[in-house]
Design a protein around this nucleic acid. Structure first.
Lengths: 165, 165
DNA sequence: TACCAAACCGAATTTTATTCGAAGCAATAA
DNA sequence: TTATTGCTTCGAATAAAATTCGGTTTGGTA
């Protein structure tokens, strides 16, 4: 299996193309990177098999389906014992309405993004977290007014070829 | 074009399947929702064409490609004039290293998620924001230690069939 | 019951995916 | 320089999937 430094220009261009359109056909992808369909197919299978690609998701237009309440909560713990972290992390992960969550350093310990059918539901969820984890010292809720920038893939160029190095 | 309330059970199941695997074949999707491939194909095209699906993204395993620094910044403004908001929002959007950004209410005005090749680059970016927008009163940086939960699609069931209604 | 529109189905056709053997290419050792 | 080796590519053949289309079913309505 290749290491990251062994991925060549074609591999990276394929990954970028897949980020941009996860449903691109192998034939189109091959044209885009100037390979024959068979060679491209072999590379693509290998990229997926070796875990460079994490999966493909169809993004649904959730705001057209319903009018959800979205919140970002910053959670602070009183105790920083590893067990406490793990426990809360697992509980957070298990909540379907949690879309993303991060363990962070800075002014708090977790940052969690929720999407809920209504505000009361969000309150239920945050209350349940407080109840099941008394070590939580603070939850600060930020209601999302607008998604200013949606995730559209990682900036592979900037990350792989950082300026000034 | 259908309205949200006119999407039936099959449409929703298709959207959920696409969230889970954006590269699922039409044939597999048809089996999953108990339709003939042709009927499923027609529905899928219509769902995409009518904008229920926002696009397809291949998720790449960025931590295998490099060792990026990821941060979440909370930004507060001194002036809440609409022009100030719009200006900063546009500048934030334009930064390739900004993966996601939200306008929020609560203890701050924007929450922004960065991915950078190294910490110095992050500092450059946050400094540049402060320079170009003097109305920023505070930026609080949270370094991401761990992605506790990755986005895996919206909880369609919970959002469309909220408990207690 | 008769009619209509929408959705579905199955078969036919077109396009794409997948497989596979042969050829090209670069690095290495003789 | 010349063989050898391993890896990648290519193109053709085959398998599978997508797409189209005419006919049928279905559900609602007059």
């Amino acid at each position: 299996m290749k290491r990251a430094s062994e991925l060549d220009r074609l591999d990276l261009r394929m990954l970028q193309a897949l980020q941009h359109d996860g449903r691109i056909t192998n034939k189109e992808l091959a044209e885009k990177v100037n390979l024959s369909p068979s060679a491209c197919h072999q590379r693509l299978q290998k990229l997926i098999q070796d875990g460079w690609v994490d999966g493909f998701i169809g993004r649904i237009n959730i705001d057209r389906l319903c009018r959800p309440v979205q919140c970002i909560a910053t959670i602070s713990l009183g105790s920083h014992a590893p067990d406490t972290f793990r426990f809360l992390e697992q509980r957070i992960e298990a909540i379907p309405e949690v879309m993303e969550a991060w363990t962070v350093s800075g002014g708090c310990d977790f940052i969690v993004r929720f999407i809920c059918s209504h505000m009361t539901r969000y309150m239920e969820l945050s209350n349940s977290l407080i109840q099941m984890c008394p070590e939580i010292s603070n939850i600060n809720t930020h209601v999302i007014l607008k998604e200013s920038k949606k995730f559209r893939g990682y900036p592979v160029d900037e990350l792989m070829n950082p300026k000034g190095l």
